[in-house]
Nucleic acid binder design. Structure first.
Lengths: 198, 198
DNA sequence: GTCTATACGACGATAGAC
DNA sequence: GTCTATCGTCGTATAGAC
């Protein structure tokens, strides 16, 4: 009775902090967000934040790696659930559009922040696991003959580049309708750009 | 003799500041760069910097708008120097690759920083003049029948998206060769993705 | 116009009680 | 594990001499 006056589990506390942090970082950016802001929004005291995370950078790092991991699992599901490069890559674009619509902050933080400015020890995002997986799908398509025998970076950039620009445009507010309405037309352009001639 | 003890023109002083600022912002980011840093690197005192620019944000703003203007002029040249959408858009991609190779900091600052975090009053970059021009070229191509009758955002994203990803990958160091070696293959993919069927 | 010195506030991080 | 109060640092911006 003396100790357990608060019913929050440690995991719950951490999750509250990470959730508030995601909101704040995507709204105002890392440097415009103070640890005090995080404490206020998450209803967790500064002391507790520093107890659970080494420092402010530690909060950002935990969040970043958590989101990368989630995204990696999603992409692994896509890989398992489809057999051809064509179907896999299309499913990837559909999933990315879906996440953009359902959790725009997640997409914003993953694809659209300059992590190196506040996480100097992380690899650039395009070297991170999800992007590696996306390129692997393209590589398999080249091997199987579905995709033209292009340089891997060229093929990946052309296949995913259009979709990624649609995502950033949507996050910037210059596309008003849901991205899901554009899946078909974007995909048919993207695939045509690199598909082997039958 | 009493007044003119320094032979620098005001324009030169401003240019020194802007040049040092571009280096610092692309190396360390806006928030990791202090006005003291700018003063040291540009050999201009803090007082003079605040005399010429309203504040730190003013320095960033002057630099950003200057670069946007330069880029706009370049694209207007491209527009005048070519007649078909095909030739114009190809020339745009070639110019963007060239700038990336010759002045990577310019490209980095223009396309790859989160301006809204430190220039909250600026429009998102994809609404800025150079991007508008790029989309206009696509719109003309749709009108003339060179390009399929797609949604303008879809067509622009697919046409330029591959090239833009090549640029960011190059800036991130995951492409080692000069982008100029990739112009032909990127362009043939990009154009194929949206070209009308003859 | 250019400079140096300084005021002022905010932030990250810690100490230490509970 | 959680909290409040506080410390020291650093960054922006200004004042005022030249």
């Amino acid at each position: 009775m003396t100790k357990a006056n608060v019913r929050k589990s440690p995991e719950q506390t951490q999750q509250q902090v990470l959730s508030a942090t995601l909101q704040l970082f995507t709204q105002k950016g890392y440097f415009n967000t103070s640890v005090r802001d995080i404490a206020r929004e998450s209803q967790v005291s500064i002391g507790s934040i520093y107890h659970h995370f080494k420092d402010k950078e530690g909060v950002a790092s935990a969040m970043y790696n958590g989101l990368l991991e989630r995204m990696t699992e999603t992409l692994e599901d896509v890989q398992r659930g489809n057999s051809s490069a064509h179907d896999r890559c299309r499913a990837v674009i559909e999933i990315l559009f879906k996440v953009t619509e359902d959790e725009p902050q997640v997409m914003e933080f993953m694809m659209y922040s300059k992590h190196r400015e506040f996480l100097p020890d992380e690899k650039p995002i395009c070297s991170a696991q999800p992007f590696v997986l996306m390129r692997e799908m393209v590589a398999q398509g080249i091997e199987s003959g579905e995709i033209q025998d292009l340089d891997l970076m060229v093929a990946s950039s052309c296949l995913y580049g259009g979709a990624i620009r649609m995502i950033t445009s949507r996050l910037d507010g210059i596309i008003e309708k849901s991205l899901l309405e554009y899946v078909d037309s974007v995909w048919s352009c993207s695939w045509r750009s690199i598909a082997a001639n039958k």
